[in-house]
Design a protein around this nucleic acid. Structure first.
Lengths: 232, 232
DNA sequence: CGCGCAGTTGATTAGGTTCAAGGGATGTGG
DNA sequence: CCACATCCCTTGAACCTAATCAACTGCGCG
């Protein structure tokens, strides 16, 4: 046990304590940060913020998953990212009172620690190391978005599906006797909105991968990757 | 005239002097930074670095334009960004001896000021403000990539073309009696690789926009946006 | 002047979208 | 405990759009 979060309800080992960007802080400083945090809850399906708003807060996810998205010209949702415990959203808020550039919605029941912009900036002033961590994270996100652009730019839908499955396997998979068991964070429609295809296409491609023996669908919210090589 | 760049050949007002991320430095410090810079030249079409390499240097573009790209699964080039004077590339190098995650190629004859990673990191240690600027720039790039994902995710090719044209108009356009005259930074094929369509499609869409009276093609490297509203 | 590359244009094809209908799981109320 | 409603997923068939293939044009350049 590292300390007690002042926000009341979160697990002491969660909240700001296990967040990568705060990893260089001392325990005292972590206490200070967590005393600045206000806890908020969102039910599955709730909108956390919308494009154009100025939440004016830094938001660190404590539990549950959050998807960020924008609407395309043709009115469909384009999912940009899926964040979970320890990730922050609303990075534009770090710098000034900028508007957020995407929508955020709770994929599960979600707990979030929010810190007012001014408070966060004060902490950053005292601990510039945090910016290094933030830079690191932003570079990682940039690289991820590059991969996404690369994937979406390809006309080959099969490879886009595979790219997505491998990402999910990596983030949400666990070892299993026959391969790797993956908890899918999105419905078929959600997956479609992630890689820019119709939900029917996801359905068909997954079944086709199953016919090839590469994966096995387990119910509708899980799948088992039997042979990663068959995917490529 | 703000000072003299030690790298020998660049204009005194260019090089590291006019770079946004160094904008908070004093003149003395700018002098220090520019004395650390080594100038490199690349001819149009030359590869500056390739995915996976570890250039170990921070690179600031002094003159000319640079495109960054990755290869898609089906072997095509997916352009990620087009950088010009004052932009930096190889941001992964800021943090550690990371491999770059994309390829970079000179679109024109290009002059670049390069600074060794260790030197840059030393400057950052003395001037943490630089990290704020870097964070700002990374957030902006992230937002741009989000827009790109949003655009690529749309099935509607027309709107992708328009998104690209508006971006070019914004970056490379100038006022003109009849509208806005845009210098196209990419060939038809390049534009296709930017928005993930075939070069023939770009050709057809541009001519169709011309038929609608929204634009006029001027030679093959310029176009005139006559009525921005007709684009939307 | 002719070569070569970039761009255009036409015909065909492939693949994903769309529309439509049916299936299966989950949850609710009687 | 079962009937019913809802939601999500699946599957089939027709359509549509951009890719592809191929020929041709025109401009820039030696």
């Amino acid at each position: 046990m590292i300390g007690k979060c002042e926000c009341g309800e979160c697990q002491p080992t969660l909240c700001v304590y296990r967040v990568p960007i705060f990893s260089t802080l001392s325990e005292d400083e972590l206490g200070r940060v967590s005393s600045l945090a206000v806890r908020e809850y969102f039910a599955r399906g709730e909108i956390i913020f919308m494009e154009g708003q100025r939440p004016g807060r830094m938001m660190v996810i404590n539990s549950g998953r959050v998807k960020t998205f924008r609407y395309t010209q043709d009115g469909k949702e384009q999912i940009l990212n899926i964040f979970s415990c320890g990730d922050f959203v609303g990075e534009m808020t770090l710098l000034g009172d900028e508007a957020v550039t995407y929508n955020a919605e709770a994929l599960d029941d979600v707990g979030i620690c929010t810190i007012r912009r001014e408070d966060f900036q004060a902490v950053v002033r005292d601990h510039p190391d945090i910016l290094l961590k933030v830079t690191e994270e932003l570079c990682a996100r940039l690289a991820k978005m590059e991969t996404m652009v690369q994937s979406l730019g390809s006309k080959d839908v099969d490879s886009r599906v595979v790219t997505m499955l491998l990402e999910f396997a990596n983030k949400y998979g666990r070892a299993h006797a026959e391969g790797r068991l993956v908890d899918l964070p999105l419905s078929r429609e959600g997956m479609g909105n992630y890689i820019g295809v119709a939900r029917e296409t996801i359905s068909r491609k997954l079944h086709s991968l199953q016919d090839q023996g590469a994966i096995r669908l387990v119910g509708t919210k899980q799948l088992l990757i039997l042979d990663e090589n068959l995917l490529l």
